[in-house]
């Protein structure tokens, strides 16, 4: 059973003029950590697959074919839109501002 102390509102140290930046940068660092954890795991996975003779590294590292790029395009566009849509400030639900 976990005995970890609960997350509570202790006095927060802030360093920027707008404390929003303190918190937002915390999100950035948490994401950066996740990115590195994923990257590390993917590298390990590729190495293990290659050692097992399952993965052709040259095929993985090579430039993708036009067909593969076309296949990726819709997925990438959806990813990009979801990432950027917040910048437009649009709302889907009606209500007070």
């Amino acid at each position: 059973m976990s005995l970890a102390p609960e997350l509570v509102d202790l006095a927060e140290q802030t360093f920027f003029e707008d404390p929003a930046l303190d918190r937002a940068f915390g999100v950035v660092m948490a994401l950066a950590t996740e990115v590195y954890v994923l990257r590390n795991r993917q590298q390990a996975l590729e190495r293990l697959l290659e050692e097992a003779g399952v993965l052709d590294r040259a095929a993985l590292d090579g430039e993708p074919s036009d067909q593969e790029r076309r296949a990726n395009a819709d997925d990438r566009a959806e990813f990009t839109r979801a990432l950027m849509i917040s910048l437009l400030g649009k709302q889907q639900s009606q209500g007070a501002a």
Binding site: F15, F16, F25, G26, M29, T33, E34, V37
Partner: peptide, 16 residues
């Protein structure tokens, strides 16, 4: 200053 404070926080009580 932010990094000094929060790298230690992430080291101890971040997700990892």
């Amino acid at each position: 200053a932010w990094l000094e404070r929060h790298l230690q926080r992430l080291k101890y009580s971040g997700r990892y």
